[in-house]
Design a binder for these strands. Sequence first.
DNA 1: CAACAAACATACATCAATGAATGTAAAAAG
DNA 2: CTTTTTACATTCATTGATGTATGTTTGTTG
Lengths: 208, 208
Amino acid sequence: MARRTKAEAAATREALLDAAEAAFLERGVARTSLEQIAREAGVTRGAVYWHFKNKADLFRAMLLRVRMPFEELVEEIGDPGLAERPLEAIRQACHRGFARLEQPRYRRVHAILIHHCETFAEIDPLAMQNEIAQEACGALIEYFTAAARMGHLRHDLSPEVAARLLQATLGGLFHDWLRNHEHFSLVERGTQLVDTQLRLLAQAPESP
Amino acid sequence: MARRTKAEAAATREALLDAAEAAFLERGVARTSLEQIAREAGVTRGAVYWHFKNKADLFRAMLLRVRMPFEELVEEIGDPGLAERPLEAIRQACHRGFARLEQPRYRRVHAILIHHCETFAEIDPLAMQNEIAQEACGALIEYFTAAARMGHLRHDLSPEVAARLLQATLGGLFHDWLRNHEHFSLVERGTQLVDTQLRLLAQAPESP
DNA sequence: CAACAAACATACATCAATGAATGTAAAAAG
DNA sequence: CTTTTTACATTCATTGATGTATGTTTGTTG
């Protein structure tokens, strides 16, 4: 075989990324060779080195297909009245995030990032995880601060502690689920835990 | 150099394990060769293959130095009156666990297991993490069930949900801290979060 | 004190993976 | 229709790590 049309080339690129996803998840990043990936995609290593500089470059490209900042999740809800109910905004954003993560591609890539790759080349997965965590925690603190200002947060809790508590809970849940997603549904248990946690953190509205 | 006395041999074995710890933590398990470990321990690969079958065997030996089942933490408190206050037992066990994990060796090994090693040879770190998580969750459910029976748990919460919530929080906290332990003290923040969480989960004792 | 075996060091064979170099057929540009 | 790229396949050289085999020295045992 030889040269393909542009569309076909883009298709093999995607096939390579798909194959990398599957292989990385199954055998781990370190133990999968570029040749295994190429074979699983139906091409040779030549194609890999044509589309990507090396394994790290391929890895980065794989990650780019699933980025999901916290703020976007809130914006996607599109309910402007939600600004007055920050805790509800958090709740719905979490639900959105759960649903996203249950899509196979999102799940696989995050599982790879968190559980199936070590530092290699110039790739530092822990730094990436830190970035994500920092971003999420920052957003949570903002929302909880707003909630506190409106009196929706229990008065004996600081927004920071509430944010850290929820973030830890979310992080632990993610890790557990990504380790073995067949054991339970993220949407189900996630909803259960987040709703419970937010209920515990919320100040009961005063009854007249 | 050649044969050493038994004590000296045991010392080099420990030196190898120490070197492996440091190297695994710094470069990751996959990217550290047995020669690097040997050199850092002041010996050659011959010593490694004398004391251990291969890298997996060395890895297992490293893990064996830091096992810490949840039940032991409770038993170590040694307060028999604690059977009547399960939530307090959980709290103190967590505090004990935090203090343990802040010891450098415990921290390093767990950081390696969770963040710096992929599946390799016959080693499956995710299965190990699952074992630990299952054990901890099972113990937590028992204690929360006891707490519910005594009316110490909020009546609108099931012991299972409470256990999962706390376990997720603990897990998330561990992961965060192991990623960058210099950012905060586990004992400090852990105490803060666990105390808060248990306070939220607890049923306020009825006042006459 | 002799012989053995422990505790390594050294040397070697092997293999898998990488990256670069080169080949090539077809698509696209002119 | 010719030329130039593109999109790969194929080959090759190099490297790094592993496992094993063998050598060597010194505690230790009888």
